[in-house]
């Protein structure tokens, strides 16, 4: 395995020397996934809370759909956004296909159901607990919402991290709508796939290590938040 040993050393030196190509790919990945998670949280948190608090016709269907979309295969999400943004599609005139914006949209589609569905679970449980007390304080559902989101903040942070984990690790969606264009839409996962097939193991492995570190960091953070919340809030 001398060749792989060399690849590993080369990968480490790429990382340690802050290789501009590697750095560019990592930066774009973070920009895309963080943006998707931001948009997903801005929509998903209030959406999930609303689904927990209000009963309206079609609510059951909405919740079922949301849960089903939690398992949406990334390639299918990519395909849906591709059809939407392709030149012949309904939003084709925007010219967004094969841009980072398209990738953000596709990853938002992946992340939003996770954030909304898990938020609904957490806020629903909290509302069940608080309901009579808040009613006694004459606080309606609308006024209750910010407080509920705040009191569930630790759980919701791990929800958001779960969303970020899903976004940063997926290949299919960004590959289809981004096109893996060098220097424009190439992110860690798509670059790893391409460089491996080209035999450029050093860059692939270097990106793989960064991705691995990122995923470990996200999961570690989620664990620490969960433990802290358990200790502090009982």
């Amino acid at each position: 395995m001398p060749e792989n040993d060399n690849a590993f050393q080369a990968a480490l030196s790429l990382i340690l020397s802050l290789d501009p190509v590697l750095l560019g790919i990592v930066t774009l990945s973070l920009q895309v996934s963080l943006s998707a998670v931001l948009v997903g949280a801005l929509i998903g948190l209030p959406l999930g809370a609303a689904l927990a608090l209000w009963h309206f016709p079609g609510r059951g269907l909405a919740v079922t759909l949301l849960n089903a979309f939690m398992g949406l295969p990334p390639v299918v999400a990519g395909l849906m956004i591709y059809l939407l943004l392709s030149r012949a599609g309904p939003l084709g005139s925007l010219g967004l296909l094969f841009t980072p914006t398209a990738m953000i949209i596709a990853q938002t589609l992946l992340v939003l159901p996770i954030i909304a569905a898990l938020t609904r679970d957490h806020i629903g449980a909290l509302w069940e607990e608080y309901r009579e007390q808040l009613h006694s304080l004459r606080i309606g559902r609308v006024r209750a919402m910010p407080g509920l989101l705040w009191d569930a903040r630790f759980a919701l942070m791990t929800v958001i991290l779960a969303g970020f984990g899903r976004a940063s690790a997926e290949v299919g969606a960004v590959l289809i709508v981004g096109g893996n264009i060098d220097g424009v839409t190439r992110v860690m996962t798509t670059a790893i796939a391409l460089e491996t097939s080209k035999g450029n193991l050093a860059l692939a492995l270097g990106l793989g290590l960064v991705l691995l570190g990122l995923v470990a960091l996200v999961n570690g953070t989620a664990y620490v938040i969960g433990e802290r919340a358990r200790r502090r809030l009982g």
């Binding site: 909290l126 007390q133 006694s136 407080g147 009191d151 809030l233």
Partner: peptide
């Protein structure tokens, strides 16, 4: 105001 048998404590 009401104080419940098992008081609800906000987190």
């Amino acid at each position: 105001a009401m104080v419940f048998q098992h008081p609800v404590m906000l987190r």
